[in-house]
Amino acid sequence: MKWTHALGLCLLVMGALAGLSVYRKNLTPYISFKDAVRSSGIVQVHGTLEKSFTHYDGKELSFRIKDEQGTMMDVRYADVKPGNFDQARDIVAIGRFESGQFHAQKLLVKCPSKYQEMQRKQGAPVPQGGV
């Protein structure tokens, strides 16, 4: 083996190790509210929006979500309210839990899609109804 090969291999291995460590640091696990409260890192949670707890003052959005186990969590998002937030049914929040609240850095808003509703009612794309 030539010294260049050895050097190249060495660099590649070092690069791979560095890459893996960055990768692990940036992983945001998708976890339950209970685990999110205990976790110190950046995580991803998913819950149904509890409409009546939403508050937005133009600078910060706060709202409450409920997960499948029925656990509630208050979320703060210090940014512009997403355009389709008012129609949202489910919210995916990415951030960390700190001093009693979930501080979201990013929100994914899940709206009930007309199209999905229709797909569910296979074979009856136009639902029945009277005047």
Binding site: A18, Y23, P29, I31
Partner: peptide, 18 residues
């Protein structure tokens, strides 16, 4: 990541760094 634990996405910072 589902093979090892809870499903995890990476944030865009990962790509920028590597």
């Amino acid at each position: 990541s589902q093979l090892f634990g809870p499903p995890s996405a990476v944030q865009s910072d990962y790509y920028n760094r590597v």
